[in-house]
């Protein structure tokens, strides 16, 4: 899903950078210091997840994990994913520095969409939360594929064809991420129920911490 350097046109790159900068600013404002270690862990998980590949068809795709990052960080997903993407570009040559903005938006925007869609449902009953978490992991990748196809409109023209290609290629990843997200959420609900960022609540961690100890 990382878009290489030299593929996209200037306007797409610039608008990607602007959107990513805006998202990161919001993310940094909302991310208080207590959540920094968590953002770090999730950033590292995302960084490493890109090395785990699911071989499908002519191309091969890797895990993204942006669903769980969104659920746990909310808007903090933007800075966390930006850092991981910079490091992936530098160390693995995945994507590139000029496409950093576009790639950040492709990965982080779905994380926030899914967080606002499922952030509440995850707090519900176990079974409902499990289903919501699966949908969250699944749809985060789905939206990422759509955004990637959208950013390629200027270069590969046929949006429909590219998006069908990207979506079918990422179908196994969507399913795997849905399962991974669902199990992560089920586990965390048992272990640390206060860990989930709740849409509309600034800091879910503090209240839980004060009550728990």
């Amino acid at each position: 899903m990382h878009i290489s350097e030299g593929v996209l046109s200037g306007p797409v790159l610039v608008s990607g950078m602007i959107l990513a900068a805006a998202g990161t600013t919001v993310g940094l404002k909302r991310l208080d210091y207590d959540k920094v270690p968590r953002a770090g862990i999730l950033s590292a998980a995302f960084f490493v997840a890109s090395l785990i590949h699911v071989p499908v068809g002519p191309s091969s795709v890797h895990l993204i994990l942006n669903g769980i990052v969104g659920l746990l960080l909310g808007w903090g997903a933007f800075p966390a994913l930006l850092v991981a993407l910079i490091l992936q570009a530098l160390f693995f040559q995945f994507g590139g520095l000029t496409t950093l903005g576009v790639n950040t938006v492709i990965m982080a925007a779905p994380a926030i969409i899914c967080y606002s869609l499922f952030g509440r449902a995850v707090h519900g009953a176990t079974r409902k939360a499990f289903a919501a978490a699966f949908a969250c992991g699944f749809l985060a990748v789905f939206f990422s594929a759509l955004l990637a196809a959208l950013s390629l409109i200027g270069t590969e023209e046929k949006f429909f064809k590219v998006s069908v290609l990207l979506l079918t290629a990422h179908l196994p990843v969507m399913i795997i991420e849905g399962i991974v997200t669902a199990f992560c959420v089920a586990f965390l609900k048992k272990v640390q129920p206060g860990m989930f960022a709740r849409p509309g609540m600034t800091d879910p961690v503090r209240g839980e911490k004060g009550g728990g100890k």
């Binding site: 071989p55 091969s60 991974v180 199990f183």
Partner: peptide
């Protein structure tokens, strides 16, 4: 488990990643 919380979470995440990485990997994106 409550006490082991964050550490357990990291362990679970990395364990699940390792499990999936058993799939023969072929790296794309470059």
């Amino acid at each position: 488990m409550r006490r082991v919380g964050p550490v357990g979470f990291v362990l679970l995440l990395s364990a699940s990643l390792v499990l999936i990485s058993g799939v023969p990997a072929a790296l794309a994106h470059r």
